[in-house]
Design a protein around this nucleic acid. Structure first.
Length: 529
DNA sequence: ATAAGGCCGCATGCGGTAGT
DNA sequence: ACTACCGCATGCGGCCTTAT
């Protein structure tokens, strides 16, 4: 099967079915090397040319590693993933139909607002999609993506999430930032540079390329072997977590289109996918789509895709009438949210979420927290941590793994969100009550830094599981997130940059080490807030 | 500072289905 | 009949934005 950047998909025969070799999997770092080397040789060209050369180099590398000849399409897929990664975003700045590849990473990129593009390469298409992402209020006007050409209609359903991000006048959503919601979004859909404060020209060492050459098609061939059993992929270790990038969403859209074509199903009416449960028509679709996203779990693809493709999913606030209906329907149907959703004309998950909020807001105090309430929260959290969450490692205490529903129940006057937000604020020094600080910050930073030194470029490449003894990955990551809360602008930073910043505040890394890190790819380090 | 609430991503478990 | 797998719904924790 072939996915083309214009959204059309054709079927080709797989040449062979040999099992994929792990040796054929090249790291983003490796791809980056290829690209930089190619860029150093020329001053202009097309993205397709760069791709072709990079693929050649990659194939060579595979042979040298003893991985044999890569499977048909395997490297193209890796290339696509590389392009959608943050590391590629550092290399790429999209400007209309042109793609500028930065030849070095020694400085921060000037942001160049993406302009409308036609059916250029996938990268330009993604940027254009992002550019079209509208503010929250406008979302309801967006069409359901079912029948839209892949890469053309890719509404970023969520508004940009960077409160700290300086942005120019963006009444029209121009230069809309990508959405790396947290450190966990390894691939943001790219173009982190494009979301930065605008500089108006292309830096001198930027290479100007066209997205594609006339007549060239950006064809991605997906290997059959990337398929994973639904139930077993939970055992995978190289899984990407966090927000789906636009590139990933586009892959799902393209997969949908292919699947529909192949099976004679409509793309403008997706009832076959959502209403005919387990129908033979739709059988295998999600598995198929997930195959194109080998770093994602099938269940994650399924959920993200469902929410993205759900026909006419309303993205407007629940009306009072709908709330009343919910209150009537829930006693009647219990938690049969699909049924409730059908009656309300809403997506089931939205109904469940809405009801949850309705209920939780009924029983809590509002307004300013009293000192007594804050103190009570502090006591409860500390008790909770003593009972469940505290792990002692080298005389350091880690907080997290807090069940906020439970805390809220015990607290009595505040709901889970209020408690959670209050606690997080306290860690940012916004509370009148001083909570126990985590004294393990330095150790945590140093351990993550060690992984960065060892080649990890993203949070999802960090081996969280083994990072802290007797502490599972989820809790360590939560701890990490808490730490980042205290770092202003962390959302806009790459992992190495975060390390530099964190070490400035908490760590012991030498100046020389910091400089080396920066030279290695980070933007200039700003003074901590 | 706080409330409100939309929406996301993940884990889990269950019922249906295909394979033996 | 038994088993493994598929597809999905649900519950939950949490992020982020907007309004007050």
């Amino acid at each position: 099967m072939e996915y083309r950047s214009d959204g059309t998909i054709a079927c080709v025969k797989e040449e062979e079915t040999a099992p994929p070799s792990p040796k054929a999997a090249l790291s983003f770092k490796q791809w980056k090397k290829f690209v930089l080397r190619i860029l150093s040789q020329k001053s202009s060209g097309s993205l397709a040319k760069v791709k072709r050369k990079a693929l050649e180099k990659a194939a060579d590398k595979c042979l040298k590693r003893g991985a044999g000849r890569p499977l048909n399409g395997e490297l193209e897929l890796q290339w696509e993933h590389f392009l959608s990664s943050k590391i590629a975003a550092k290399l790429l700045v999209v400007d209309g139909k042109q793609v500028h590849l930065k030849a070095s990473l020694g400085h921060d990129a000037g942001g160049i607002p993406a302009a409308e593009t036609g059916t250029g390469g996938s990268v330009a298409g993604d940027a254009a999609s992002r550019q079209r992402s509208k503010k929250r209020k406008q979302r309801s006007e967006e069409p359901s993506s079912g029948g839209a050409p892949a890469g053309a209609a890719s509404p970023s359903k969520r508004a940009p999430k960077h409160p700290a991000q300086p942005r120019g006048a963006d009444a029209d959503g121009a230069a809309s930032a990508p959405s790396p919601r947290t450190e966990e979004g390894g691939e943001s859909g790219g173009l982190g540079a494009a979301g930065r404060p605008a500089a108006n020209s292309v830096p001198a060492d930027v290479m100007v390329l066209t997205a594609t050459e006339p007549g060239e098609e950006d064809v991605i061939v997906l290997p059959e072997e990337l398929q994973l059993p639904w139930g077993k992929d939970a055992k995978r270790t190289d899984v990407k977590h966090g927000p789906f990038s636009e590139a990933e969403k586009n892959i799902i859209r393209r997969a949908l289109k292919w699947f529909a074509n192949e099976n004679g199903l409509p793309v403008d009416d997706l009832r076959w996918l959502f209403e005919e449960r387990r129908s033979t028509k739709a059988r295998g679709f999600w598995k198929f789509a997930a195959r194109a996203l080998p770093h994602r779990r099938i269940t994650a693809v399924h959920l993200a895709g469902t929410r993205m493709l759900y026909p006419e999913r309303k993205r407007t606030p629940f009306t009072k009438e709908e709330d009343e209906q919910l209150r009537t329907l829930v006693p009647k149907y219990g938690s049969q949210w699909v049924r409730i959703g059908k009656e309300l004309g809403r997506y089931s998950g939205d109904c469940a979420d809405r009801y949850r909020h309705l209920v939780s807001s009924e029983t809590n105090n509002k307004g300013k927290w009293t000192d007594e309430e804050e103190q009570r929260l502090k006591t409860l959290v500390e008790e909770y941590l003593t009972e469940f969450g505290v792990k002692v490692v080298n005389d350091t205490t880690f907080l997290d793994g807090i069940n906020w529903v439970r805390i809220a129940e015990r607290h009595g006057t505040r709901n889970r969100i209020q408690c959670l937000e209050k606690w997080y604020d306290s860690t940012r020094g916004k509370s009148s009550v001083a909570y126990t600080p985590a004294i393990s910050d330095e150790l945590l930073v140093e351990r993550v830094a060690a992984q960065v030194d060892a080649g990890a470029m993203y949070e999802y490449e960090v081996e969280w599981d083994s990072l802290v003894e007797r502490m599972d990955a989820a809790k360590v990551k939560k701890r990490w997130r808490l730490l980042l809360h205290r770092l202003s602008g962390a959302q806009l930073m790459e992992l190495p940059d975060k390390i530099v910043q964190l070490q400035r505040r908490f760590g012991t890394r030498t100046r020389e080490q910091q400089e080396r890190l920066q030279e290695d790819g980070g933007p200039p380090v700003a003074e901590p807030a």
